[in-house]
Design a binder for these strands. Structure first.
Lengths: 357, 357
DNA sequence: TGACAGAATTGGAACGTTCCAAATATTTAT
DNA sequence: ATAAATATTTGGAACGTTCCAATTCTGTCA
């Protein structure tokens, strides 16, 4: 039972050199003689040495800890799981590891995990903020020189980088698609009106309506919780309108699924009697019946982009806030009633790489 | 621009005490006078002190780093995302943070991330090993006194704790259910025969068959990749048999979906013309058409259990290997052709807490 | 008042690494 | 052979914390 940890001194002793030399080897310095290097490496392997990043990090005060923090608001949602995978891919191959935490939309939890991560000395943070996060919450981090990248939801007012999908363009293309199919009264359903994402998507809806030469009617915008239940509620109100709409774009896919539920409960078949379009292209969208027409946002791509941006800032040493919006793409399936056509049952289009630039 | 980090010495100076006292306060020692404590705390807040866990951890050699590593083989799969959430819940409330990494079934990647985590000084590891992981791979960890808990897939031969679902009982109940519906020839489809999980599930199948008073026929066991494509392949072979089966239990849900695809391609309707049962109860199972009858395993519960087990071992200081198998439950939906009954369209039963003991 | 116990505080010495300045070994040029 | 240059190696002194043993305060009891 080897009790004590093997340290750089142990291997120095065993290899007949000084600890400084061993340290040089560890850092791959070109100063050290080739013969010495291989000997040291051999001894390290033999003794089963493991590098102590904590100690190293202590010395190179404030320098790179090779840890990035990732906090998401709902890992259960496959959207965020994909995002985390995207982040992991790039940080991993840069030799970093990720602290991953889930806030479940709890702002207290978020504060806790961020504090904890900070104590552990993360060198950067990627966060999809919980709802109602105060923009000032990340102030201390950036003041301490720790780059922060906000993804998915932006944080107006915070001086940090962010990367969000092009909500406006996405919603606009959805509306135009529906208008192209002949719909005149298109509703906007779901979402909390006090969020930036809502504003963006609504703006896109409005531009789409106007671009299609239709009139914008306030009554066709029906907010609700951005969930399945919210969708049921919203479609209920929509149908109760005097002149009822014949189609709807939804705040996100969850709402869209709820809308479908609500339609069926009223003996209307989504896709046939009423067109519905979602937003996000979550994994269930393509398997659902009818398959959901939706705006695909490639969460994994966002994760990768965000991680790249963060690493760039970490390496640069200085974090100048940068804002990127990633392209989205309308994926036409069945729920909009567009094609009787599609013979291939699973529209795999979602997997394409779209985040190149 | 505050350049230098605030240290325990700074706050000692500012509070007019010694660094030792500050340290005592940090650890919540009862030795320190109440007045002093609150003064120190006040100063800490004022100067924006952040605890440096790295330094602390360096001193208390080998002691608790408050980090647990979590490595899963496929975070994209919602099964594992749920599992990670379960782990996060319990480690988070124990004041730990989790390193979460994804191997994507790559054994090299797995080795890398585990090594990296070790350098960072994790105090425990939860792993769902990539396929074909060598049981000896975790030897160094346990030798170094770092507890390891293997989840979902077990690692025969490794002297580590593990927590897997009750594959045998689950498959057995699936078979019995089908037999109860009158099926006489029930196939076992999919899965790689060289894995421990396969063995367990097959054993369950066999006991189920025998318990139902049927004969076990070798020809009804058809292995394949544990994927949708594998399912298509397996059902093809099954249907080509002289006396074809009328029902099948599948290695997992992916296989089951493939089986449904294959049935439809032959103009057979799953649920009506042929009964199929899956395993895992992935999130898509309840939304699919027909809704999949499957064995539910509650990944989040496994995550919580695993984390609890790990924390227990970390606190105990000694890790004695312990093996737990968690209960599973057959969720009857439509694909087995059981009920014409179910009026509630979404069988929410999957959300119940079943991991109490 | 002095001795004594308990409560509260405190100065080093670690922990395992990296950095710096300086020392030593090896070449090269004269 | 010797100086100058270059290549390699090396002892400390940090980094921010915790621990230990020792010290200084309190108050209590004779």
């Amino acid at each position: 039972m080897t009790k004590a940890r093997v340290t750089v001194i142990d291997i120095a002793k065993a290899a007949g050199v000084s600890k400084s030399t061993v340290s040089l080897v560890l850092q791959g310095s070109s100063l050290v003689n080739e013969g010495t290097r291989s000997k040291v490496n051999a001894v390290m392997r033999e003794l089963g040495y493991v590098y102590n990043r904590g100690a190293a990090n202590l010395r190179q005060a404030g320098a790179k800890s090779k840890i990035v923090g990732v906090v998401v608001n709902d890992l259960t949602n496959s959207f965020f799981a994909e995002l985390a995978v995207g982040v992991d891919m790039v940080v991993q191959s840069a030799g970093f590891v990720q602290f991953l935490s889930n806030t479940g939309e709890s702002i207290d939890r978020q504060r806790e995990v961020v504090a904890s991560m900070r104590e552990h000395g993360i060198s950067g943070l990627i966060v999809s903020p919980a709802r109602a996060t105060d923009a000032a919450d990340f102030k201390p981090l950036v003041a301490a020189g720790i780059p922060v990248v906000v993804v998915v939801r932006n944080l107006p007012g915070a001086k940090v980088s962010s990367i969000v999908s092009d909500n406006q363009a996405g919603m606009m293309s959805a509306v135009k698609h529906l208008a192209g199919l002949g719909h005149k009264r298109i509703a906007f359903l779901g979402g909390f009106p006090d969020t930036a994402v809502f504003d963006d998507r609504l703006a896109g809806y409005r531009s789409g309506v106007e671009a299609a030469g239709l009139d914008y009617h306030e009554e066709l915008v029906i907010a609700s919780a951005p969930s399945r239940a919210g969708g049921v509620e919203a479609i209920g109100k929509a149908i109760a309108l005097g002149r009822r709409p014949t189609a709807a774009v939804c705040f996100n896919d969850a709402v869209a699924f709820g809308v479908c539920d609500g339609l069926r409960a009223r003996r209307l078949e989504p896709g046939a009697d009423f067109a519905v379009v979602g937003f996000d292209d979550v994994i269930e969208a393509q398997a659902a019946v009818p398959a959901l027409t939706t705006v695909s946002v490639d969460p994994q791509g966002i994760g990768r982009r965000g991680a790249q941006m963060l690493l760039k800032q970490i390496n640069a040493g200085k974090a100048e806030a940068e804002t990127v919006t990633t392209a989205v793409r309308l994926v036409v399936r069945e729920s909009c009633g567009a094609g009787r056509a599609p013979p291939s049952k699973t529209g795999k289009s979602v997997k394409s790489k779209q985040d190149a630039e």
